[in-house]
Amino acid sequence: MIWVFIGALANIGFILLAAPLLDGLERKIKAWLQNRRGPPIPQTLYDIVKLLRKPGGLTGNPGLLYRIAPYMFFTNMVIAFLFIPTLLDYSLSFIGDIIVVYYLITASSIILAMGSISTGNPFAITGSTREISLSMAGKLLTGITLAIFVAVNKSFLITSLFPIIPPYRLSSILGLIVFAILVYIEGFRLPFDIPEAEPEIAGGVIIEYTGRDLGFAIYSLLLKRLLYTSILLNLVIPRYTVFSPIYYIVGVIVFSILFSTIECFSGRHRIEYALSFMKKLSLATGVVLVLAVLGY
């Protein structure tokens, strides 16, 4: 038991380092695809370290929710990672832990958006309304997709969901595809970075944060991105072998390359287009869930 705990902590240490580095990698790849040299790979890490060392100044007198939102978001993400094996195969687990993870993810989006609304900044409000509508759609989709895997493996225990044991069923293959799209969407990548949309609403949900608070907000968003990727990877890579750390690392890098390349050649959608896209996807996923329950 103690080893599980130490292993999970080691995992946390790893992801805290890996999340910014992966973003740095994505920036580098995007730069190359845009024929630029780009910043060095640890640049995002440097940025975050620099932000964390600065005092967080809050303008005016925003509500408590707003003040603590980045920290709650961050804590939620770190706790969620305790249940998801990443580099090492250790993770906490109990019956229904998947519901806890689901709750943590959903709560953090809502906290961020609600906190942002309380500032009264019109850009933040617009960003938050966008964030809430998008994240509702996204969380619904996450729920349905996870339900597919629960139905396939007939378990609410995360460790028994991972990985999906071959031979793959039709519903699990479709579920994996949907989940991969979801990882992309929830990673606030173009064209789905609508809540932040720099040229339109100047950062949206995070516009009022600065210094340490901003650092934690950005850090948490990066962690969330990695969390989704990790869940996806855990569904496919073999676990409990000597090579599983290598599988994992190769996996996240492959997804980073793939996703940043897609992002590089897309423009930003308007919110209603993104929502209608997700609505259609949710309906299709619902059908897949029915298939999974029926045993296909």
């Binding site: 845009q34 050649f265 930003r268 959608h269």
Partner: peptide, 16 residues
Amino acid sequence: AFHFLGFDTGFMITWR
């Protein structure tokens, strides 16, 4: 214009 449409690669291409 491409930058405002969120398509930064287009921005880089035309400026190059």
